[in-house]
Nucleic acid binder design. Sequence first.
RNA 1: GCGCGAGUGCCGGAGUGGUCAAACGGGCUGGACUCAAAAUCCAGUGGCUUAGUGCCUACGCAGGUUCGAAACCUGUCUCGUGCACCA
Length: 946
Amino acid sequence: MVDHRKIQDKWQRKWKKEKIFEVNVDNKKKKFFINIPYPYISGSLHIGHGRVVTETDVYARYLRMQGMNVLYPIAFHISGTPVLGISLAIKNGDQKKIELYKNYVRPYVDENEVDGIVQSFEDPWKIVDFFIPKMIDEFSTLGLGVDWRRSFTSGDIEHQKMVEWQFNKFKEKNYLVRGKYPVLFSKSLDNAVGEDDIADGDTNPVEKQEFTLIKFKFEDSYIMAGTLRPETMFGQTNMWVNPNVVYVKAKVGKENWIVSKECLEKLKYQDKKVEVIEEIKGKDLLGKTCFAPFVEREIMILPSEHCDPSIVTGLVTSVPSDAPFDYIALKELKDSKDMCKKFGLDNEEIKKIKLIPIIKSKGYSDFAAVDAVDRFKIKSLKDSEKLEQATQDVYKAGHHTGVLIETCGKFEGMKVEEAKEAMKKALLKSKKAEIFYETSRKAISRDGGEIIVAILDGQWFLDFNAKGWKKDAKKCLTAMKIQPDKFRKQFEDVFDWLDKRPCARKRGLGTKLPFDKEWIIESLSDSTIYMSLYTIKNKLEEFGIKGDKLKPEFFDYVYNGEGDVNKLSEDLNIDKKELQEIKESFDYWYPSDHRHTFSSHIPNHLSFMIFSHVACFKKNNWPKKISLHGMVMSDGIKMSKSKGNVVTLLELNEKYGADAFRAFLCNTTSVEGTMNWQSSEVERMKKHLEQLFEVLKNMSKERKKGVVKNKAFVSKVERLIQKASLSLENMDLRSYSNVVLYDLLRVYNKVKEDKEIVNDYLFQRWIKLLCPLIPHYAEELWDGKDEFVSISKWPKYDEKKIDDKAEFIENSVENLLSDVQEIKKLAKVENLKKVKIIISPKWKYKFFRNFKKKYEMEKNVGVLIKSLTDKEHGKEISKLIPMLVKSPSKIPKIVLSQKEEFDIYVEKKDFLESELKCVVEIELADKSKEGKAKNAMPSKTAILVE
RNA sequence: GCGCGAGUGCCGGAGUGGUCAAACGGGCUGGACUCAAAAUCCAGUGGCUUAGUGCCUACGCAGGUUCGAAACCUGUCUCGUGCACCA
């Protein structure tokens, strides 16, 4: 048995000791700078992380063996709120989170330390400090050729200084603007929040919803009612108010508004000045009327205990023709004299309220709500689930197929989709409505505070439509290689669509905006040009240059060659030579030659990376290439903590080892495809590698110098080396791995003669070919003159040895053998006595050669027959051509001459006799007396068995 | 809803105008080896047919373009994914 763990550890240790992946400026070698998005630290790494780093590594290893100076670094991202969220959860005694993190920590430390370490995570930096070394270790177990000297985190001062430089640049170029912006906001934290700060925010996301608050004139005030469907306002029949709720009348701006107390509270956060005037009991409003816009008349205020004061204003306008809820509520009132009496309402008046049809949509009458209520057999407001469903159905049908009818005045004929916007606009313009934001569900932050929507003033935005920016970004994109290119369009679409994007927030780890220290640069915006830091990080370390010296002028000089180095040296108190060497390092390594990433990063990270580069760097340092990989599934479903199917790198290493994973990953799916992790398949790959290892080990033992006589075999091997190289060139890791894991093995297994010479010819080449894929096994088997196969030269294929004819002949002979077997079966011949091989009549060779030539240009059967027929064989030709056109597989790749073919079979006669264990006779059709002889075709002999 | 991607045999998945009944891998069936098993090797694995290279049916569904389509176009269904302040 092969002990992959031992092998793996051994070679990883040696690589590290000999520093073979630590690379430096070397002007004699062509450089290649490849990188991946730095992972965010949030517990243990899993096979999703494993995918991107491994694919990159396989490719990087290939380029290295091609003689390039390959830089492959990895850093770590810690910006943003998730780490804070974890700290907060632990601080607040969230047992679930605490357990989760205990589980993350446990594999690395003694059990009795676990509690203490997790406790220490109340300080977010402790999380960072704890996990980063672990992550480096875990990545290393995959056998990556990474230069770890160049690692950093986005919290490091060098990184922050660089980001400050970047944002100063943005500012200079007027790429930043400020404005108002609605955000999810925690009242207790007094801050904007993200998914990670909200309880269950990851599993049940909270969204912001934009409501239109419509003003209903009531005495000296406005009753404010919120709606998501302003397009239904022509169907209003009444106003709903909760009789049990105490509302407030308040001065909002210059107007008096009636809203719930909760709403008034929220309005303060939404950029409104409010001042309470008096309380108004909901039940005091009942039976009165208010003036509704669009329908332009007074509508009655009616009771509904379902109006929730904590949602929007707690007052709702009623459109019973299109809202099942309103219809049922109104119906209940009409049907119940008791209820009317209770609220002091005139039942007869309510009965007079008529539904107003407003929208015609597919599958519904003009009264969609009535239809839906019937369909779902809804009896009362208590059928809340059915009501919800009915509302959704009506809404969906209306939204996609609905058209406003004649009751809607000048909006008649408009689609619901358009009318929604048009009517909202009209209302806002005439000051009959306001915008109000509400959360899509009730939510609390991890410390228990209520989540609301707040409008922040002074929010910083990146303005992608700023003058010239998009143009440059597009220029960069056009010059870039996108692999596979089908993703290019997506980039283009995103570029068009990008507008203003908030780029700073008030919470989280990261870099402060240098010119407005209240704000912290948001975590996607602070990780767009950090690749540049890899090129100089080791130098800063080497020279002991502290991050706080890295003023903007430093980057101006190093990155863009601006400023005077003598003056800069003085100003920053950094040695001039050191500065120059740092710059040299940057100039050597930059730009990024290749970035390999998950395709879902296109609309955000990757696009921002391009925009940021064109904003900050000179054109020659813009990124060159992006390749995209697909997503990762585990057992057919998306990997997620809640489903419990996350496979960590720890577990992976424990059970299967790096090489099995690498081979499985590359061989199981194309780079852009979805990788589906199935442990049974990985297990199989592991076994296959063990077998392959044995084969190769035996190969290495029995070797003898010499010339391989089997031309077809050599041709196939050379061809496979070519294929492997070309596949890798295009980062087609699947095709490459197929060649080195399976194709070569099959070709090798077929050769029977001169094994020792064959072994000698193939062994070292094969090991090299395998090295990018399964470097540990490759090193273990390697016995070449370089110390490591990892840094040896990639095998060159010899194009001259690729011999179509030799392979063709071999195939013909093989086909002959299998044909004999088949005929033997059909003829029910038990023991072969004799096999007669009849070589095609001479005229057919000429005919086939002509046919092949003509066929390249002309596919029409009639035309072909006319141009190729002759008197002597007209009949046969007119039969052959349709057959060949219909199944082109019958056309031989190569047409030999009759003599050549005859000689081949004569030469192979002994071999055939030994294979078939009988007498073999060979004759020319032209001389044969057999009836079948005329059926023979070039490379397809007629066969007779006895 | 809009955008993007995908739908292929028992399964995973190649294949983007003709060497396609479909690579490669797995499974299954039969055979060789073995006391036996595992491993390995060979053969078979849509249907029918035949002393061979023949026919039919198939690549989500329905049409179309073409001498020819799994591949191109149109429509349709299903699934996945993104839709912004979130890394």
